[in-house]
């Protein structure tokens, strides 16, 4: 049975190195290597497919963001795109055939060296924290501290109550973002392991395809929600009321 917690591979001093952390490093290497490779080979008239694909993805997301956030798009875009790319690669890295079968045996249990990093709550919670904290910092920088605080605190009792609800909703954002992503990817892993242990060939394929789609959809959901939260919180409170 797959455990919720990531498996410990080794320790450096007091710090645990888990299989999801190793997977994170693999995703990092892929993204950073890809970014360097693409940026070094950029041409005004693209010749390779890689530049074309990257450009079309970035342009599509940027155009979508501009339609939602207008002039704040340039500030929001790095978060929106980075969340999407990181989560997408993290989700799909856990689906690489054989990745969960390479490991070592411990107490008659196989401990894989790599496990999808988004199936670890530490990762999804970390991403949610970055998303929510960055949203609030951006909100303060864009609309000012006074306008920002007026969203949550007011002398009007009704508005004060709404503000308290807003604070609660901000906390629930962290929980909902992290648990949605974690739940979907972890559940997918469990399904794949279960189906693969019953049927070795062919039958797991539709589930694998489904998980590829789930990985894409979850990356889109997380990044889109972050984009929407950022777009909403960077509009001045009084303008939003109008």
């Amino acid at each position: 049975m797959v455990s919720f917690a990531p498996e410990l591979i080794f320790k450096i001093g007091q710090f645990p190195i888990t299989n999801t952390l190793l997977n994170t490093l693999f995703v990092d290497a892929t993204l950073i290597g890809g970014a360097f490779y693409i940026s070094r080979n950029l041409q005004l008239v693209p010749k390779g497919k890689l530049q074309n694909i990257t450009e079309s993805v970035i342009e599509t997301f940027y155009t979508l963001l501009v339609s939602v956030a207008e002039n704040r798009a340039i500030k929001i875009f790095p978060y929106f795109m980075s969340f999407f790319l990181f989560i997408l690669f993290a989700n799909w890295s856990g689906l690489i055939p054989g990745i969960g079968t390479i490991g070592f045996w411990e107490h008659d249990k196989l401990i894989p060296f790599f496990r999808g990093t988004t199936s670890d709550l530490n990762t999804t919670l970390g991403l949610s924290l970055v998303s929510v904290v960055a949203t609030h910092i951006m909100s303060i920088n864009t609309i000012g501290i006074k306008d920002y605080l007026s969203r949550y605190f007011s002398l009007n009792p009704i508005n004060l109550f709404v503000g308290i609800l807003e604070i609660i909703s901000e906390i629930t954002k962290i929980i909902s973002l992290s648990f949605r992503l974690f739940g979907n990817i972890f559940a997918g892993e469990v399904v794949l392991i279960t189906v693969s242990s019953i049927f070795a060939f062919l039958v797991p394929l539709p589930f694998l395809l489904l998980e590829i789609i789930v990985g894409l959809v979850q990356a889109l959901v997380f990044s889109m929600l972050t984009m929407v939260f950022m777009a909403i919180l960077t509009i001045p409170h009084h303008a939003e009321k109008r």
Binding site: N122, G126, L129
Partner: peptide
């Protein structure tokens, strides 16, 4: 399996 170190590492990593 929540661990402050792993959580912090993931935040810094991102």
């Amino acid at each position: 399996g929540l661990d402050p170190f792993l959580l912090g590492t993931q935040v810094v990593n991102f």
